[in-house]
């Protein structure tokens, strides 16, 4: 169990609901991941389509907590209005706050993010900001009232893993009381394990599971990786060293002769 936003969660794996081959595979993957939190979005209803209703029915059948996002917003104003609509639509005050600053790598806009976070916190939202691993941005978000941070591992959908482990470690050390959820850029379970090993509290991912050849099996793989990573962090890793040190006792090595 771990605690985020006054809630006890029994899984350190948060999962997205997008890009699965079908709503049924999404359901099975969420179950196999053991995820307690699932991200969703709000979008315009497509003309003529009963937009996303199969997906929505499949998701409602699961006993999960929803984390709506403000994906695609490019200004604090857009993100705030989107969050307000999401709060009413999904009946939750949790919001994954995304304010995109650059369309090339979907990098968060730290200025818009802080501005929107301040306003949404004042409105009673629990803000989960999708941010970079920049320490000062993290500190500003906490000062704005965020009680959790979601630094990226790598740009969304790139599957490159943790591009800046040093930055994440620094965030961990400087903000020890703030839950850190590495969000975006993870590709394989070992990336998730690494995030947990270095002290992050959880990971949020979507594409790595949804676009795997077998999303359900990959969801299970990520569940195990997150468990392993957290256990390793709690166990305390050995220090890195530059020089080799034999693990087998040297004393009593056969054939060893004292030099004449």
């Amino acid at each position: 169990m771990w605690r985020v936003a006054d809630v006890e969660l029994d899984s350190r794996l948060l999962i997205g609901s997008s890009l699965y081959p079908s709503p049924r595979v999404m359901q099975e993957a969420i179950r196999a991941a053991g995820a307690a939190v699932v991200t969703v979005s709000v979008r315009r209803q497509q003309a003529g389509a009963r937009g996303g209703e199969d997906f929505w029915a499949a998701l409602r059948a699961l006993d999960v907590r929803l984390l709506p996002n403000t994906a695609g917003c490019h200004s604090a104003r857009e993100a705030i209005t989107t969050a307000e609509m999401a709060r009413e639509l999904f009946g939750t005050h949790w919001i994954k706050l995304e304010v995109i600053g650059d369309d090339y790598n979907l990098q968060p806009d730290p200025f818009g993010l802080v501005e929107a976070a301040r306003e949404l916190v004042a409105q009673g939202f629990e803000v989960f900001p999708y941010c970079t691993e920049d320490l000062v941005v993290g500190e500003k978000l906490v000062a704005a009232g965020c009680r959790v941070l979601m630094p990226w591992g790598a740009p969304i959908g790139t599957a490159r893993g943790l591009l800046n482990p040093y930055g994440l470690r620094t965030l961990r050390e400087r903000l020890p009381g703030i839950p850190l959820i590495v969000d975006a850029g993870l590709g394989v379970p070992s990336h998730a394990a690494q995030a947990l090993e270095l002290g992050c509290d959880a990971v949020l991912l979507n594409t790595a599971i949804a676009q795997a050849t077998d999303p359900v099996a990959m969801a299970a793989a990520f569940r195990h990786a997150v468990l392993a990573g957290r256990l390793a962090f709690e166990a305390g890793r050995m220090p890195e060293r530059d020089l080799a040190q034999p693990s087998t006792p040297v004393v009593g090595t056969p054939f060893w002769q004292q030099q004449q």
Partner: peptide
Amino acid sequence: ELVVPMEGG
């Protein structure tokens, strides 16, 4: 703007 629940990451 009229929005509905949709999948998201």
